[in-house]
Design a protein around this nucleic acid. Sequence first.
DNA 1: CCGCCGATGGTC
DNA 2: ACCATCGGCGGC
Length: 202
Amino acid sequence: MTPPLPALPRAFYDRDTTAVARDLLGCRLLRRGPGGQWVETRIIETEGYLGPHDLACHTARGRTPRTEVMFGPPGHAYVYLIYGMYACLNCVTEPEGHGSAVLIRAVEPVAPATLPVRLDGPGRLTRGLGIDRSDNGTDLVEVGALYIAAPARPVTDVSSGPRVGVDYAGEWAAAPLRFWEAGNPRVSPIGAARIPRRRTSR
DNA sequence: CCGCCGATGGTC
DNA sequence: ACCATCGGCGGC
């Protein structure tokens, strides 16, 4: 693929986190590899983390070195290490100081049309695209090695459900802040409609 | 198909 | 001690 596809403006991120989480579906996540080659993907699953009042949100534990980026201006990447071995990619939302972000949980390849790695799952997509904590703080509004562009066509059919892996968050565990493109079979089936399994024998 | 468990290391 | 995960394995 050949960017520059224009990056989404900062105003896109400087909004209600739930709206940003929904509107990121269909957007392009662009990654330039070490060899200068581009990979264009399409966002198909997200989760909103609303701020310090949201007990599932990292900022609920206050302002710390790790969450500094989340309290910063919108439109920056918040990348953190989970379980000692996977990175998770987020976009900071709302005005500076708010402490909210959207986790990108799954993308699908656009160009190249297929890749030898899976990109569904927050840990798999960062591993597959070579995203790690060195990308923390990247300004996604700049056309750089990692940024986000507008969708070819907006996603209108959106499903939602509880976020994954936040059972510790009390009342907030059940909040329907996970969003995915309805009917897309590449979204991991956690909480989504069961994927009909292909017949393997005859 | 479902559920359990280990890997692995930053964070507070 | 916990954790916004993943993949392998064993049981049904």
